[in-house]
Amino acid sequence: MTWSEVLELLNLGAQETGWMVGVSALLTAVGGLLVGVLLVLTARGGLLPAPPVNAVLGLIVNVGRSLPFIILLVAVIPFTRAVVGTTIGTDAAIVPLTIGAIPFFARIVESALREVPADVVAAATAMGATRRQIVGKVLLREALPALVAGLTITVIALVGYSAMAGVVGGGGLGDLAIRYGYQRFETEVMIATVVALVVFVQLVQMVGDLLVRRLSHR
């Protein structure tokens, strides 16, 4: 295989990975925030205590966290078909990626929100702030640097998950490494892919760190 062919493959793989990871990260951010906030709100002693709701939500999150991604990928196929209309391809891979990452990010959100000092929340309560104000202006805003750092971790985890997207024809860099590098013994492609992945992860981490530095005023 010539270098230009390899580059072409890499280019395509990178685009597919970028698309899958990008879209699912976006959806995960929204879903994870929602679930994470709910977990914190409904916890005992939270702003909207509802221990049963909290327990059920926690259980669902834990189930999601414990399923190996490759199993999840297959298990959600009917759901994927219902949502995307197809079960193969890059778009189809986005569904299991998102479902797999939401519980992961939700726990990160939960712990980030818990890190907001209790007396800051108490101060807002004492001022007469509404729950909405406390969640939006205190919890989420104060935890923002931690949330961005957590999202960075999640995106990088998604890059890892996305390597398995090849199973449903999702393509991407990881799939490239498996099909060419592993199954066809094209060591050069394997190395090139790995390098590309390292660069990708590195970039994500750098952007994440930069944002955290910008946002943090501690």
Binding site: D119, A122, A126, G128, K137, V138, H217
Partner: peptide, 22 residues
Amino acid sequence: QLRIARHGIGMIHQHFALLSSR
């Protein structure tokens, strides 16, 4: 009603409890 009543009661804290992001 309690929230409105709290507007009339200021509170200061040992560890200040300020918003670090603002």
